[in-house]
């Protein structure tokens, strides 16, 4: 059982690190601000989540586990809200996203070139 937990937690840690790294590279590689948010959001969700889950498997039952869950929940809520706030503020300040098109659910989802 012990060894199984270790293996699972290692897999989670490695996968989480991989996703963090991917997000970090995306942060550098994507062309403009609005697409970079998506890259950052990889590290915030699956990257952080997997690392935290990996740690949880090491923690065993107890307060540490509960605290890890708390941190994960907090960071998901806070990270999401912060991403949204940044995107909104950027849009408001006049930064326009470069897009290939826009869609509207009311026009039947048909793409319309802007």
């Amino acid at each position: 059982m012990e060894i199984l937990f270790d293996i699972v937690s290692w897999i989670c840690l490695v996968a989480g690190s991989f996703f963090c790294l991917t997000g970090g590279i995306g942060l550098l590689r994507f062309p403009e601000f609005f697409s970079r948010i998506h890259a950052a959001s990889i590290t915030d969700t699956l990257g952080a989540g997997l690392i935290m889950i990996g740690l949880m498997f090491q923690a065993g039952w107890g307060l540490v586990l509960a605290k890890l869950i708390l941190i994960l929940l907090f960071s998901l809520i806070a990270g999401t809200t912060a991403s949204h706030a940044m995107a909104k503020a950027a849009l408001k300040s006049g930064l326009q996203p470069q897009v290939v098109g826009t869609m509207d659910s009311e026009t039947g989802g048909a793409p319309s070139k802007s």
């Binding site: 995306g26 890259a39 990889i42 290939v100 509207d104």
Partner: peptide, 28 residues
């Protein structure tokens, strides 16, 4: 959903900027 989307976006990070097609959509 988050896991699936993560894998997709991660793939596109490695594929490079050409693989993305940003859109702005309005929904209700």
């Amino acid at each position: 959903e988050v896991v699936v989307a993560n894998i997709d976006v991660a793939r596109r990070v490695w594929l490079g900027p050409k693989s993305i097609s940003p859109m702005v959509i309005n929904i209700k």
